[in-house]
Simulated scan of single mutants.
Amino acid sequence: MKQYTQNRVRAMLMVALLCAVGIVRAQPPRGPLVVSPQVNADKSVTFRYLAPSASDVKLGAQFEKAPVPMTKDAQGIWSVTVGPVKPDIYPYSFSVDGITVMDPANVAFFPNERFKASLVDIPGDTPLIHSLKDVPHGSVSYEYYPSVEGTTGSLVVYTPPGYDKNPKAKYPVYYLISGTTDTEETFFKVGHTNLILDNLIAEGKAKPMVIVMPNGNIAARLAEQKGGSKPADPIGRDNPEAVKRANDFGADLTGNIIPYIEKNYRTLANRENRAIGGFSRGGGQTLRTAFSNMDKFAWVCAYSAYLSPTEMERSYSPIVTNVANTNKQLKLLWVSVGSDDFLYKGTVEFMDYLKAKNVNYKSLITDGGHTWMNVKTYVAATTPLLFQP
């Protein structure tokens, strides 16, 4: 019996050893450690990418005007140092023999339906408004809600510091919509909206609020969940299909998202305590949804977005024909754009139209283009204005 037990133990040990060897062999070979990106003390940044067999690797970054060639060392690591770079958060990627790839050494990425980019955060000597600071922090949650045609929609929801500590307190809500091909995560992961609000609330500059970040692409979700192919994005801002999709989103927001949020979060459920804002396509969705639902929103923020005078006259004429009522209802109508933004001309034309019609609005024109660096600036500028007396 003793000999049987010893033989059994030996057999079990042998099986375990063979399994361990198999696991080790199944693992991919490990190359040299790659550190990327490396932000240096002088604000220059070193990027690295392991590709021993590649013949050409370039860095593409939003702070560079053209792709930057990288150099390969004896270990097959390609690298380049650029800068110094103005402190901010920037997307970047690598072109490896003509194929665009993310940085595998970096866990920070840009959520987007179409392109895949990594993110580099270059800190300022004084912490920027989107930086992680030693202040009370709110919470970020992922939510799923019943949406159109039996589908399930997704949201990212920010609740301010202290939300869980005072179960009787209720809060205003800012519905914040990202741009074309962006997702519900983009305002959170790229825009750092949660950190911006944490910092502004800590400084007494913004009121505590709930921020709801939905995915604006209803058509893609319908296709995905019903087994179809994702439809192409419409060409043109006034394209009838683009307008239809914007209105479909507005119906989902007012008919499904707002009721879900007001059922599951402690909110002040009236128009004076609801704001809506968005970037690019999300800004167009913002304006169309707000102007169609003046009974639901008193605060409206369009970032790099506009409606044409033609569409205003055709679809939203009460906004300008009864301007006294519009100015009374809207506590804030905000329009902002970068001077190098490809939507600059249309946005300025929209501002001029509002001015000619005596519609009250606030505006901000910044340097730069259609970027999330500008979006963070707009969020930091507008949230202190929301829900103020």
Rank of each mutant, 00 (worst) to 15 (best):
Q329V: 04
P389S: 13
G282P: 06
A269H: 11
N293M: 04
T180S: 12
S308N: 05
F110K: 11
V96L: 05
F350T: 05
L13N: 06
S93H: 14
P259W: 05
D233M: 14
L132R: 13
Y49I: 05
A356Q: 15
R221Q: 14
G255E: 08
H130C: 06
K376P: 00
W372I: 07
N239L: 10
A223I: 01
I261S: 00
P384D: 09
A41T: 03
N360A: 15
E272V: 08
D248E: 15
R266C: 07
Q38W: 04
Y158D: 05
L33G: 02
K376Y: 06
S339T: 14
Q388S: 10
E311I: 01
L222E: 09
T193C: 06
Y361P: 01
R245Y: 06
T152P: 01
K58M: 14
W372H: 06
N322A: 01
F291Y: 10
L200R: 05
K72A: 09
W372T: 06
P111G: 11
D233K: 13
K168Y: 04
L333P: 00
T46S: 10
T100K: 13
L333S: 08
A302V: 03
T181N: 12
D248Q: 13
K207Y: 01
A232F: 06
E113H: 14
V39K: 04
L200N: 02
G124D: 10
V35T: 11
L119W: 10
P234F: 08
I23M: 11
K263T: 12
P309Q: 02
I23F: 13
M70D: 08
A381E: 15
W334F: 15
G179D: 05
V39H: 01
Y4H: 11
E224G: 02
L354G: 09
Y49A: 00
F188N: 12
S308A: 03
P214G: 09
P52R: 08
L385I: 07
A242L: 07
P231G: 06
G216W: 07
S339Q: 14
L307V: 01
V68C: 07
F63L: 12
K263E: 10
A66I: 02
R30L: 11
T310V: 03
L176K: 00
A26L: 12
I218G: 06
V68K: 13
A51I: 11
V379T: 10
F291C: 00
E143Q: 15
F94N: 04
T152N: 11
G255Y: 04
V210E: 04
P240D: 11
A26K: 06
S317Y: 00
I129H: 08
K230L: 10
T81E: 02
V85Y: 05
S339D: 15
V375D: 10
T377L: 12
V15D: 00
P104L: 09
M1C: 07
P87C: 07
L364A: 12
S55T: 15
T71K: 14
H137P: 01
P136Q: 10
K189Y: 00
A305F: 01
R114M: 15
N358L: 04
T81K: 13
R221V: 12
I235S: 14
I218L: 09
M373Q: 15
N40S: 02
A380N: 13
P231Q: 02
N374G: 03
E349P: 01
E203T: 04
G368K: 09
V243H: 10
M14R: 09
S139K: 14
G60L: 14
V190N: 05
A302C: 03
A117V: 12
D56E: 14
D164Q: 08
A206H: 07
M70P: 09
D238P: 08
